[in-house]
Design a protein around this nucleic acid. Structure first.
Lengths: 152, 152
DNA sequence: TTTGCTATTGAAAATCATTTTCATAAACAT
DNA sequence: ATGTTTATGAAAATGATTTTCAATAGCAAA
């Protein structure tokens, strides 16, 4: 089932964080976007509905949300971080991995095959957790290559 | 079988690149190190045996080696890139994935379970290549969590 | 509702890894 | 040995992200 609008309010408050307009605007945007956005992307998009927003606040909010596990941060190798709403257990729809073109930087989210990966990932996660005594709470899988356009 | 000393000479020359002292010093260092080093780490280590080295040259050489596929570049989320000698087909010993502590930044190379992953990775790689018409030539798998020290 | 405390904000300045510029030096083909 | 490039290193430039700091806005309590 998809997440309800405003589900993050409790989570923020639970952490003793305030429910501010900029934070809500950023979360609202992220939950509508299916793309991996840079901080600047988010800044400009939020600016359209809340012009007073500052880039600093975007960075700060993203850091907070990443720490809360609400947002995932990625590096696709072009020198700027990308952010997306994290998948959660109630809403698996959003879980995907990335396919990145090292020539033009294009990124494809693929959800195919993720189920087959899932079992192995879980096993590995458990084994690693035991062997290295880590508390594992996330993973990333990325494939790098050349996209159809750049092959031409 | 381990790679022979100086194996990179042909590869550089084959690309029309010159075999310079700084490049050799950097490669020599990388082939001795089992760790994931930042550009600055490499700079200081090489400086001990070749004091004239410049940080700029380190960056340039690393970029070249990454493009050649000799070195792999990683991002562990602390704002600086890490480099290690890439695994190659003759020498599988070096193939591993990463387990990263999001609290202190500690990184563990794990080679366990990589064989089991391998089959799945190859399958996925083929399927993705077909479906998205990508020419895939690399992948990264990273687990994130809290290390034993930071759990305390 | 009003008040007061404190977290949050935005602008500007600071930071820090990485790149670019440019004049000099070192490879290496001849 | 020589000449042509490619490669180098220092310094300056870049660009994403952080920090600083005074002003603002959430929200708990009255």
């Amino acid at each position: 089932m998809p997440r309800q609008r405003g589900w993050w309010k409790r989570r923020l408050r639970g952490r003793g964080c305030r429910l501010t307009v900029p934070r809500q605007a950023i979360l609202e945007l992220l939950s509508k976007s299916s793309e991996h956005l840079s901080a600047e992307d988010i800044y400009f998009k939020v600016k359209k509905i809340y012009p007073a927003i500052g880039l600093t606040t975007v960075y700060r909010t993203l850091e907070l949300l990443v720490n809360m596990g609400v947002v995932s941060k990625f590096d696709f190798g072009d020198g700027r971080a990308r952010y997306e709403l994290a998948a959660n257990s109630e809403d698996e729809e959003n879980h995907h991995h990335h396919l990145i073109c090292t020539s033009c930087g294009k990124v494809i989210n693929y959800t195919d095959f993720v189920n087959q990966e899932k079992e192995l990932i879980e096993k590995t996660e458990n084994k690693l957790a035991t062997k290295y005594n880590f508390e594992i709470n996330n993973h990333q899988i990325q494939f790098y290559g050349i996209c159809p356009n750049c092959k031409k």
